[in-house]
Amino acid sequence: MRIVIAGGHGRIALRLERLLAGRGDEVAGIIRSGGQAADLRDAGAEPLLLDLESASVEEVAEVLRGADAAVFAAGAGPGSGAARKETVDRAAAVLFADAAVRAGVRRHVVVSAMGADPAHPGDEVFDAYLRAKGAADAYVRSLDALDWTVLRPGRLADGPGTGLVRLEARTGRGEIPRDDVAAVLAELVDTSATAGLTLELIGGSTPVPVAVKSVAGN
C-alpha cells in the first residue's frame, strides 16, 4: 500500500511514517523544507518537497497519483497566528482533498481536532484554529469522491503510548499520546469500513485494533 502524508515532518506524521514503513507499506511525506528530508528518510518515508500554502491543485495531485491512501496531518503549529490557521489548517486541507479527488485517491484520512467547528465563537488564535479545522472537515465530508474518515484527538501528549484508547463519535475531553494517535491512524488508513465517520479519540482501555474494528462495525 502506498500512503502519502501531508505535513510529513509533524510529530504525529513522523510516528505514523515509522509505523507504516515498519509494516511494509510504501510511505511518502510532503514537507515544505529540504532540511526536514533526513528525518523522513530515518522514519522510512520518501520526502516530497512541496509547499501546500502555494502549490496548485495539479501539483499536489501529481504527488498523490498512484497512492492508495492520503492522510492530512499538516498544521500551522503552535506559535502561528490566525492567518496561518486559515492558510494551512483550512486552505491546505481543502487543497489536499481536491488534489486527492483529481488524482483518484479515494481513501482519505484527516487529522482534525476535538471541538473543531466552522461556527466556533471567539477571537483568540485557538478559536480561529477550531474554526479553520471545522471548515476543512465540513468541506472534506461534502466530497462524495472521497472515502473519508475524520479523526479528532483530544489533548495531545508526548509521553509513551499505551496502545489503549477510547475511539467513538463522542468521547468527551481527555488526553491522548501522539504515539497512540499514530497507531489509530495506521489502522484507519486500511480500514475502509470507517469511511464516512468523524471520530473522537482519547486515552482509554480498548486496544487500538479492537477500537477501530468496533467503530467500523457500527
Rank of each mutant, 00 (worst) to 15 (best):
R152H: 06
L197H: 13
H108L: 15
G161R: 04
E175K: 09
F126L: 13
S33E: 04
P160E: 14
G154I: 12
A169E: 12
T171S: 04
A92N: 11
D180E: 12
L185D: 07
L143T: 02
A91P: 00
T162Q: 04
L151V: 10
E17H: 12
P78M: 02
S80K: 08
A38D: 11
V4R: 04
A93G: 06
R11L: 12
G44S: 11
G75R: 04
E59F: 08
T194Q: 07
A100L: 10
G115K: 09
L188A: 13
R41F: 02
A73V: 04
D137K: 00
S142F: 09
V212P: 02
E86Q: 11
D51G: 01
P118D: 09
G81D: 15
D158C: 01
V111C: 05
P153W: 11
V27H: 04
L48I: 15
D180L: 05
D42Y: 10
T191A: 15
G35D: 06
L156R: 13
A169F: 01
P78R: 07
V189F: 08
I202Y: 07
R32L: 00
A91L: 06
G22E: 07
P121A: 03
L48A: 13
G75P: 01
E62S: 12
A21D: 12
G77Q: 10
D123I: 02
F126E: 12
D89A: 10
G196F: 08
E59D: 14
G172V: 14
L197Y: 11
R65M: 10
A145P: 00
T149Y: 00
A216W: 13
H120R: 14
T191S: 15
L49W: 07
R84N: 03
R178L: 08
A169W: 02
L48P: 09
E168C: 01
G35H: 04
P47Q: 05
L14Q: 12
L197R: 15
A6N: 14
P153V: 09
A74S: 09
G174L: 07
Q36R: 14
V60L: 05
V60A: 05
G134A: 03
A28G: 08
R106K: 13
F72E: 02
V150Q: 00
L167A: 07
G104Q: 07
V110S: 01
A55Q: 06
D137R: 00
S214L: 10
F96S: 08
L50M: 10
A211S: 02
A28D: 10
V101M: 02
P118L: 12
V125I: 14
D190E: 13
A211D: 05
R18A: 14
G203W: 03
